[in-house]
Amino acid sequence: ATRLKFAHPAPDTDLSHKMALQFAEQVKTGTNGSVVVDVFPNGQLGTDEQMIDGVRSGIISFTLVGLNNFSGMLPASGSFSLPFMFPDRATAYKVLDGAPGQSVAADMEEFGMKSMGFPDNGYRNITNNRGPIRVPADLSGLRMRVNNSKALNDLFQALDANPQQIPVAELYTALETGVVDAQDHPIWVVEAFKFFEVQKYLSLSQHAYSALALVMNLESFESLTADEKTVLVQAAADAVAFQREGNEAAEEKQIEFLISEGMEVNRDVDSAAFQEASKPVWDKFIEDNGSDMIDAIQEASK
């Protein structure tokens, strides 16, 4: 049998892991055991970037990481995580499964990867210790940990927060001691990484959508038989559908849990004001990367 390695960063209690296991099971039964997938959760085989390198060189067969990690290779893919790109998840799914997503998938092949679909990572929301974030001015002066996305750094700089680079591993302590007062992540991360223990306010700003990308080493995909390929593609599609549905459903439960742990959740966010503030970020992004992908996304969103 062909043995393939599936590595992902999420804890084994997370939906991503259930999705990976379901995929592995379906591949095994569908191919009558001729393809076996071993799942390595928890970042055991490295950080997001390392796993992508691993998939590209073939030492890992699959990984499931945030789509934003690919923006170094595919700058246009940064369009998907621009602030306020998608009004709701349904639109995001339509676009990711449509022409724009397929064009990213085609570009991935240049880098030795086969795209197997885009599961849901949720919207990014802001947590902090000062107070609820309702209008842009509420961010003013907050020291905020931001990931390595240029657009998000630009956004929070424009909102007069003070964006800081802190590795995720050190973020809990940084929030605890007050090196930074705020951070933004999808809600499941706030739960899994225990940020609720050191953060008081969760504001559902939904300022950027984040998709996951399930990618496979292109060569090992090509080396499979036609039947096996069909099974893998179908299993991936089923796994993505399962994950999207489960993730959306889980979010409300996660919010309830965070409230029960003492977080104050604020749903009253002036989205229009934040969107207005994010316009210059879009302009800068277009200046750097062109507007083709953005246009395609907006076309497909209709």
Partner: peptide, 18 residues
């Protein structure tokens, strides 16, 4: 505390870091 390994096991084993 503070401790990177305690944080690591908190996340990997789903245990309260605090």
């Amino acid at each position: 505390p503070p401790s990177l390994p305690l944080i690591l096991i908190g996340v990997a084993g789903n245990i309260s870091i605090a």
